[in-house]
Design a protein around this nucleic acid. Structure first.
Lengths: 138, 138
DNA sequence: GTAGCCTAGTAAGTAAGCTGACTATTTTGG
DNA sequence: CCAAAATAGTCAGCTTACTTACTAGGCTAC
C-alpha cells in the first residue's frame, strides 16, 4: 500500500469514487447496465417525462453522450422516447415498466455496494454535499 | 438543483469526484495532460524506476490501459522506457527532466483545483482514506 | 531438465466519454 | 414581421478505458 497519507485530497476523492464505481459496475454487469445508465433511469423515474438535455445535466454528461445512452436504454425497452408536442425540437423521455422493474433490482444492490466499501458515517455525506454544492452547477 | 439530499452516498461520492476530475482536466488541458497521466508521472517521480504493471496498480487502471498511456507520455518525452536487465519480460519506467518540470507545473494547479471546489476540511480526508483502505486493494 | 504454471506486457475489439460542427426549431428585438 | 440569437438534439471524429485473448519469459517441482 503506497503512502496515501501524502496524497492530495482530490486524489483520495477520485480514488474512492473509482473504487465505488468499479464495485457498482461489477454488480450491474449481470443486469446489463452501467452506472450512468442507472442514474439516468433513476432521474427519469423521479422526474417523470423529461427532456434529454435535462437528463444530461442531472447525470453530468454531455448532451452528445446522453443521446446514445438513451438509444441503448430504449433498444432494451427500459425507456420510451416521445416527441414533445409543444416544442418540435425536443423529446420527452419516460421510463417503462420494464425499466422500473430493473431499477428496483438495482436498488437492492445499493446497500451491497455501500456496505462492501464504506461504512456510511453521515459526516461524509455532509462534506460531499458541500463539495457538490460549492461547485457552481445548478 | 435536484434533491441531492436524498441521493445515496455512493452517488454523492461519484458526483463530487466527477466535478473534481472535470476541474482538473480543464486545468490540465493547456499542459497536454490528463488526470491519469499526472497520477502516473507523480508515481514514477516518487518511486523511481518502476514496472508498468506496478504503475497500473497504483493509478488503478488496467495494465492494458497503462501501456498506451506510457507510450503517449514517452512520445512527448516526459518518461523514459528501459528494458529490465534482470527480467527480460519487464521494463522500467523513469521520469525525464522534462517530465519533472511538467509535474512541477501541475503541482501549482493542485491548490487551484482544490480551493475552487472544496474547502479542505481534514475530516473529509480521514473518511476518504477509510473508504480506500477498506476496499481490499493493496 | 523439462512440463506446467505464473507473470509482464501487448494486441484486437468494444464501449462510452469528449469536442466541434451541423440542422431544425423557437424566441427575441428592432 | 422578419432577421438574429438562442436552444434541442444529432453526427463525425478522437481519445481512452475496459474485456478477452495472446506471446514471451521466468519459476517450480518432479
Amino acid at each position: 500500500m503506497p503512502d496515501m497519507d501524502r496524497w492530495p485530497t482530490s486524489r483520495l476523492l477520485s480514488t474512492a469514487a473509482r473504487l465505488v464505481e468499479l464495485a457498482w459496475n461489477d454488480k450491474l454487469r449481470p443486469l446489463g447496465l452501467t452506472y450512468p445508465a442507472v442514474l439516468t433511469l433513476e432521474t427519469v423515474a423521479t422526474s417523470g417525462p423529461i427532456a434529454p438535455g435535462k437528463l444530461a445535466q442531472s447525470v453530468r454528461v454531455q448532451a452528445q453522450t446522453m443521446g446514445p445512452l438513451l438509444t441503448r436504454l430504449e433498444s432494451r425497452g427500459f425507456i420510451h422516447r416521445q416527441p414533445n408536442r409543444f416544442d418540435r425540437r425536443g423529446q420527452l423521455i419516460s421510463i417503462t415498466d420494464l425499466g422500473l422493474a430493473l431499477l428496483e433490482q438495482s436498488h437492492d444492490l445499493e446497500s451491497t455496494v455501500l456496505s462492501a466499501i464504506m461504512t456510511d458515517s453521515g459526516n461524509l455525506r455532509e462534506e460531499l454535499l458541500a463539495i457538490v454544492r460549492h461547485s457552481n452547477f445548478s
